[in-house]
Design a protein around this nucleic acid. Structure first.
Length: 574
RNA sequence: UGGGCCGUCGACUAAUGGUAGGUCAAGUGCCUUUGGAGCACUUUGUCUAGGUUCGAAUCCUAGCGGCCCAGCCA
């Protein structure tokens, strides 16, 4: 990553990103030489689902901070629960991290450490710090106490070290059924922090692991695996989300009892976005119940969904670095994310003309069989992008939205008697409207002014208030265009009416398919993944569902629409 | 109501005892062959009450509000 810092005029370094408390901790640790000047982080996803935009924040932090201070970052899969984890998720996670533009130093799996973790468990048993418990899950819950009442010691808590050793070894050997026993840390059943009430370290799970196969039938719990994995990798700053704050004493306890490298856990706030759900469990449910077309449905907040939608890694990285990080629990407006895609795409996406809902426009005074090549600018933000030729003829398609028989106030586009500019072409003036039985305009007839070609101002100096886009009917190609709205219609999708699930907040109009949009010829063989701005409409990305001669486009995000805003405004009071 | 964490413009985030600033959003104007982009300007904020201090968003006390924890998930 580019970690260069702009310099202030006076010569003092200036932070390019907002400062945050984690950076402050790292700088302090560097200053006191706490870890010999080393910064080692890790990104530790569980391979039980696809990464989403919330993970992007964590990734940018883990990799970004290490990079900024010349440190390293490992990718480590937290694969301690074989019942939920799959290779498919491992693959997608690696793809997504790479796509975001990051390169991990070490690639590890918690399962790499199962042998070491097992040895350490024996060590804790020998030290009298862990014991095998025969309580059932229900009994254990009962013994644990409540938020306000202390727990009680399990009757098995004071087994001899020899018996614990024997039992634990037999757990590993597969002598016991799932759920019949666990290994617990012996800490304090009366602790006000429930995580310290003798937490489970190992459970029996006769399950095939995606990497270790059937080698193990006992698996370590998160709390017993995570800190030690960090320690083994000599991680200096282990960032995780706020809900693990209560686990930090336990994280430290294991490290201290084992006398191993003291990694430090630092918690930050998870990303929340309006109109979107960032819970792997719920996203899985959306996929499984068919509410979306898969993990990479462009309406999903997954990185694969967002990618397919047309977002760029650059936009996401800019977003992540600008939103900052803190310990406040808040919800970001979706508009913030959208701003950063627009910003990036405005800079880089070539412009083309496309008509989503065609209305036929005939130029009565234009020669019947004439075709002109109009010169169009590819990207006004980037002169190097050059120009292209766009065919123009007597019969065109324009956007239905760009014509109103009875124009409201402040509507500047085409209407009977009014003149507008056709982008890169001529002024046209509306002379006549042809309507169907239902009274809908199906064809507009205009005359054009040859003196206004290609942006020329007419000799009389008259001006028009609008420029509209168009496509030559004879040259247009058909395309499918998929327009997306938010997946949920509520800003907080979790807030549903009582008795109803979050799925009741699904937006029925989140996907709108336009089957016969009319596109500029140049788009015929656009390759999947390429991004364009459809002038005056928004940014669109070629979907992988495209077939030769039949492109499919996803709308990434619409352009800001001042007119839509005006039209939506409540009428002014007299 | 046990413990932990957090309260700064509408949203997110800075200011680490010394000018409350930035981004998004909203609004106004300029500009414009995209009602896009850009430029300029504007509005709105330190949860409350006490205290310490020359000086408090920052430190102290007490309230109030929000989030998290009772998986053999992570």
């Amino acid at each position: 990553m580019n970690a260069s810092q702009p310099q202030a005029e006076a010569g003092a370094p200036v932070e390019s990103r907002p400062s945050n408390f984690i950076r402050a901790i790292i700088m302090q640790d560097l200053k006191t030489n706490k870890y010999d000047g080393r910064v080692q982080t890790r990104f530790p996803p569980e391979p039980n689902g696809y990464l989403h935009i919330g993970h992007a924040k964590a990734i940018c932090l883990d990799f970004g901070l290490a990079d900024e201070f010349g440190g390293k970052t490992n990718l480590r899969f937290d694969d301690t629960n074989p019942e939920k984890e799959e290779q498919e998720y491992v693959d997608s996670i690696m793809e997504d991290v790479r796509w975001l533009g990051f390169h991990w130093d070490g690639l590890f799996y918690a399962s790499d450490y199962f042998d070491q973790l097992y040895e350490w468990a024996l060590q804790l048993i020998r030290a009298g710090k862990a014991y095998v418990d025969d309580l059932s899950a229900d009994e254990m819950r009962e013994y644990r106490g409540t938020l306000t009442q202390p727990g009680r010691d399990s009757p098995y808590r004071n087994r001899s070290i020899e018996e614990n050793l024997d039992l634990f070894q037999r757990m590993r050997a597969g002598e016991f059924r799932d759920g019949s026993r666990v290994l617990r840390a012996k800490i304090d059943m009366a602790s006000p922090n429930l995580n310290l009430r003798d937490p489970v370290m190992y459970r029996i799970l006769h399950a095939e692991h995606h990497r270790t196969g059937d080698k193990w039938c006992i698996y370590p719990m998160y709390d017993y695996a995570h800190g030690q994995s960090d320690s083994l990798e000599r991680v200096t700053h282990s960032m995780c989300t706020l809900e693990f704050e209560d686990h930090r004493p336990l994280y430290n306890w294991f490290i201290q009892q084992l006398g191993i490298f003291p990694s430090q856990q630092i918690e930050f706030d998870r990303l929340n976005l309006t109109y979107t759900l960032l819970s792997k469990r719920k996203l899985l449910q959306l996929v499984n119940e068919g509410h979306v077309r898969g993990w990479d449905d462009p309406r999903m907040p997954t990185l694969s969904g967002i990618r397919r939608r047309g977002y760029t890694p650059e936009a996401i990285r800019n977003f992540c670095s600008s939103i900052g990080v803190s310990k406040t629990n808040g919800t970001l407006e979706l508009a913030m994310l959208e701003h950063f895609v627009r910003e990036d795409l405005n800079q880089h996406a070539p412009r083309v003309m496309a008509v989503l809902r065609p209305l036929k426009l005939v130029i009565d005074n234009y020669p019947e069989n004439q075709v002109e090549e109009m010169e169009a600018v590819n990207n006004p933000e980037d002169p190097a992008a050059g120009t292209r030729k766009v065919p123009f003829s007597r019969v065109l398609h324009i956007e239905q939205d760009d014509f109103r028989e009875h124009p409201p106030k402040q509507y500047f586009r085409l209407s009977p008697g009014r003149e507008v500019r056709l982008r890169y072409a001529y002024f046209v003036k509306c002379k006549e409207v042809v309507k169907n039985e239902k009274g809908e305009a199906i064809e507009v007839h205009c005359t054009y002014d040859p003196a206004t070609r290609g942006g020329n101002t007419p000799p009389d100096g008259r001006k028009v208030k609008a420029t509209i886009h168009w496509v030559s009917a004879a040259h247009a190609i058909d395309a499918e265009v998929r327009l997306y709205d938010t997946l949920f219609s509520r800003a907080d999708p979790n807030q549903s009416q009582e008795g109803k699930e979050f799925t009741s907040n699904l937006n029925p109009d989140s996907l709108q398919v336009i089957n016969k949009a009319k596109l500029e010829t140049s788009l015929l063989n656009a390759s999947p993944g390429s991004r364009y701005q459809f002038e005056r409409l928004g940014y669109f990305c070629v979907d992988r569902d495209s077939s030769p001669g039949k492109p499919v486009f996803n709308r990434t995000v619409a352009l800001k629409d001042t007119w839509a805003k005006i039209e939506k405004r409540p009428p002014e009071k007299p």
